[in-house]
């Protein structure tokens, strides 16, 4: 708590300090007129996915507050690295922002042989807006009613079961790989082209299991078409109070979630950053937005740039271990 307050104060101080002296100069003019044109929000995933939906929800409100439309620019592919690289190299004038996630700012740098951006050095973190839990679901035809039974089933027939993922090196793959390592089971990874097709494969019974993102699988779990057997967060999800967490099912400390936050390219003027940070924090804390997030299986979270950097560093360490253990290297 003290750390939060301190860092908030520090950031505020730095922001003020850097903003005030120049305020009378040219930057004030640019700040007054910012944004001078529509703001591009690069989403490094295809339209319609969970990241995209959250980005559009927040982007619309941000546009209303900035007085210029926020245009979502979907640049999917290669685990989110393509879009994120585009955002990293965009002009740092506040007219290009990106929705960074665990995938783009932690997993991709850990899993790819070469990523043309540095998640910490090339970006100005603004704030987290949401976090989505991961939910382990089975096709209802699988003879396992909970995580214990599923692990026993996998152990009795090693290499027979399949799990779907949204792509090689995606969060959905790594979440399951973490569980595989912790439980010592052998399930074959079948990559799909995104969350939608992966979910369809489990719905249709082509593949037995998926550690899917909550927004993608929750409606199907609620409709009884997918069987939820474990939540990846530390606490149970309010949307599925009867489903135990993976941690309480015998894997203490297990935690996989996907956070989503806003980033600007490094070097974006401080006054613009401060403005965006304030607007975004307000939007994420807005009760209406919180309700909208919850409808999508996500919960609203905000933090400070310093906290975001610390979070990225901690997660980079955690996921790098899994990536090494599984031997994922993407080119």
């Amino acid at each position: 708590m003290t750390i939060t307050i301190k860092s908030t104060l520090a950031v505020a101080a730095v922001t003020l300090a850097s903003a005030l002296p120049i305020a009378a100069g040219a930057q004030a003019a640019s700040n007054q007129t910012y944004p001078t044109k529509p703001v591009r929000l690069v989403v490094a995933f295809p339209a319609g996915g969970s990241t995209d939906i959250i980005a559009r929800l927040v982007g619309q409100r941000l546009g209303e507050r900035l007085g210029q439309p926020v245009v979502v620019d979907n640049r999917g592919g290669a685990g989110g690295t393509i879009g994120t690289e585009i955002a990293a190299k965009a002009a740092p004038d506040g007219h290009t922002l990106t929705m960074g996630t665990t995938s783009t700012h932690v997993i991709a740098p850990a899993a790819y042989a070469k990523v043309n951006y540095d998640p910490v050095k090339d970006f100005e973190p603004l704030t987290l807006v949401a976090s989505t839990p991961y939910l382990l679901v089975l096709n209802p035809g699988v003879k396992a009613n909970n995580l214990k039974e599923f692990i026993a089933l996998a152990k009795s027939q090693p290499g027979k079961l399949n799990f779907a993922s949204a792509g090689t090196g995606s969060t959905t793959q790594l979440a399951m790989e973490m569980l595989k390592l912790a439980a010592g089971i052998d399930i074959v990874h079948v990559p799909y082209n995104g969350n939608g097709p992966a979910g369809t494969a489990v719905l249709g019974g082509q593949v037995q299991a998926l550690f899917g993102s909550m927004p993608a699988v929750l409606p199907h779990a609620q409709a009884g078409r997918l069987r939820p057997i474990g939540v990846g967060t530390a606490k149970r999800s309010p949307a599925l109070p009867n489903v135990p967490t993976v941690a309480e099912s015998g894997f203490p400390g297990f935690e996989v979630s996907l956070w989503l936050g806003f980033f600007a390219p490094k070097g974006t003027p401080k006054p613009i950053l401060a403005r965006l940070q304030k607007e975004l924090t307000d939007i994420a804390n807005n009760p209406e937005m919180k309700a909208a997030f919850e409808k999508n299986g996500a919960s609203s979270v905000t933090n400070t740039p310093a906290e975001m950097n610390a979070l990225m560093k901690a997660e980079l360490e955690k996921y790098s271990k899994v990536v090494k253990a599984v031997g994922i290297e993407l080119k």
Binding site: P46, A47, G48, I53, R56, G196, P219, A223, R225, N296
Partner: peptide, 27 residues
């Protein structure tokens, strides 16, 4: 009916529905 978009255009329509407060899917 399933909340599964079959194409980029459909994904966009799905996004538009969600923004309008309708979560397409079985319910």
């Amino acid at each position: 009916t399933l909340g599964i978009p079959g194409s980029g255009t459909m994904a966009l329509m799905l996004g538009a529905l969600t923004i309008q407060g309708i979560a397409p899917g079985p319910q």
